[in-house]
Design a binder for these strands. Structure first.
Lengths: 366, 366
DNA sequence: CGAATGTCTGAATCTATAC
DNA sequence: GGTATAGATTCAGACATTC
């Protein structure tokens, strides 16, 4: 759970820094953050200024910028910040990048070209999107998030059990149904005007951060805006680094983050999958007498039975070895999880799955 | 409604041509087709075998046509066929191109670079996708269709009213919920093996063709496969041109198309997507802050109390799991409807049933 | 014969740790 | 870094079979 120390990162944690994100990322040590969430500006204006995705309908003008000049400069900008992002991302960290059809293809292509390995594209389905007033297209009711590892061999974190718990014990899919950021969650000025045109809902960031980080790990947002990523990270007991060019947005973000009450450790805890739990070799159960040497193991249908040896190996006919190896051998399967295959005969003639003994042992050892 | 005559196109209508789609498109006159639907190879890059938890083997796409040396060669292929496609597309025609996260960013970037104007990205949400068996990613539950005009000034066709009618008189959104092509719709050989690894559902093409063409207009599919596009086009009273490299696929497509009975003009508006029953997992209320992490749940008699975790699981003493599981555990009952069992403490000391929050959330999401 | 149960399958970039 | 092995992992729908 600890953050690597001595890299100079500690001084920058839990802060919002004002400035160009590429310059600011250059100050961060390499391989220092566990996750990155980026909601970059969607298009560049001719002058090279950044522009938020004001739809043409909203500002009512024809696109003043020339697409053919503009896309290459947008690509150059994208590659520049993604290159720095990749440098500061830890070897086994992951990045989320978000966009709409205007820019998401550029983002995805740049990610792949730079060596990132796409894990999923996730669809944020908006429950309450703006309708298409002119009736000339389908209602643009979603945005796309690309989730990628630093490279194809990354051993990235995915909190599978937590995501499954969040979805009533069914695997979380790649399409997420989440309302827009409205009502009291939306930051406004004194006159009630939106402080930021594209403030993202906290529920979206909740799911993102919960899916790929552990408490205490560091989340970087290079386009922090009014601070949704940092606010949610803080609430969930994660560390954050927020970069934002606009001082007004940054100030609003700082005030907002300050007001966030971090969850208690127990509330921030999530369901641990079996992968996260300590391993118990079968031999330990044997030597503790939980499943003593000489016990008989059978499969559920009692097709095979095996004898437990004093060293934790088992024997079934000519097959001999670990519970996994023998389980695979008798079934002529390429592999087998012995814990979920073998059972112990109970006094009443009932069978008890080996895995239940392991769970019991896990509980008793704290 | 008429098709332009005298261009030499008439001789090629309502046919399946066998060969490389780039070569074949070169024979078509420029600006001759009203719509293009293209489902090109995805460049999946599968490595080893994948087995289900029950050790059965997943029948993946390992066909030669889906193998490319690297991303640059995939890009070159994409640009080559899209260039020809743009040449044969009428000035006011539109193109649909479909893919997954493996290739869709390359497709979208190529489309934009070649001058197409993206109108929507449409999400095909699969009602019954294959799960992620190893629990290492989100279930890949959708594919993306890019809908684009030939250029920014195109006066393209969008059958707004037809789409609205297909969607119970509300604007059609950019996310479509449609099942996979399975059961009797799936083409199979004598042994029951699927004829094509990636046959698309007719419901998907029904919506595509209905949205952007008029009866009598011409739909081109450069990657026809086993002919879904042509079959649906014929049923809907459109003309088609199907290109397919593999003679086996092409033969199957021809037989299939031959058997299609064109609909009368008025009968075209029936098949819709699958209707989705709204479902709210408890975790979604947690991440939306309706019942925030750290909340205390109690039963009606306040005999038990539980704490809500950030992933929507709850804890009560040693019991940990979903609202249903923990409700059952504390009562020592075989099952429990957590929605009807747990309550949230209100400011005034009153209790509010969890189910009321669920009903509220259901109402607000339409 | 209907209900209940079991089997099969789908565009899939599908493991982690110790030695 | 390569190799061996422990062991984690599935949802919906169509269809077949059994009770």
């Amino acid at each position: 759970m600890g953050v690597s120390v001595g890299t100079g990162l500690d001084l920058l944690l839990d802060q919002v820094m004002v400035g160009d994100c590429i310059d600011l990322m250059r100050r961060l040590p390499p391989a220092s953050v566990h996750a990155i969430f980026a909601d970059p500006p969607y298009n560049l204006q001719l002058k090279g200024d950044l522009r938020r995705p004001n739809d043409t309908l909203v500002d009512g003008v024809d696109d003043a910028w020339d697409r053919f000049d503009d896309l290459p400069s947008y690509d150059a900008f994208t590659r520049a910040w993604l290159t720095e992002a990749r440098r500061v991302l830890r070897k086994d960290g992951t990045i989320w990048v978000m966009g709409s059809y205007h820019n998401v293809f550029r983002l995805g292509t740049a990610l792949q070209d730079l060596g990132f390995w796409v894990l999923n594209d996730v669809i944020w389905r908006k429950s309450n999107p703006m309708p298409n007033f002119r009736g000339r297209r389908f209602t643009n009711a979603h945005e796309t998030l690309i989730w990628a590892a630093r490279g194809p061999e990354s051993r990235y974190r995915f909190n599978y059990a937590a995501m499954k718990a969040l979805n009533e014990e069914v695997q979380m899919r790649s399409d997420w149904f989440i309302p827009l950021c409205t009502g009291s969650e939306r930051l406004r000025d004194d006159k009630g005007a939106k402080l930021h045109p594209t403030q993202k809902p906290e529920a979206l960031l909740h799911r993102v951060i919960l899916s790929c980080t552990a408490p205490g790990e560091v989340v970087l947002d290079p386009f922090l805006g009014t601070g949704t990523t940092a606010a949610v990270a803080r609430r969930l007991g994660r560390r954050y680094i927020g970069l934002e060019r606009d001082p007004g947005y940054a100030a609003a973000a700082m005030a907002r983050i300050e007001a966030v009450e971090p969850l208690s450790e127990t509330a921030a805890l999530t369901t641990a999958g079996k992968r996260e739990q300590p391993r118990i070799p079968f031999g330990h159960l044997v030597e503790r007498g939980v499943v003593p040497p000489g016990s008989i193991l059978v499969d559920r249908a009692r097709r095979w039975s095996a004898t437990v040896a004093a060293d934790g190996s088992i024997r079934c006919g000519r097959a001999q070895g670990s519970i996994h190896q023998v389980g695979a051998a008798v079934q002529e399967a390429p592999s087998c999880n012995g814990w979920a295959f073998w059972h112990v005969e109970q006094p009443g003639g009932r069978l008890r799955l080996l895995d239940e003994y392991r769970v019991e042992a896990l509980g008793s050892q704290g």
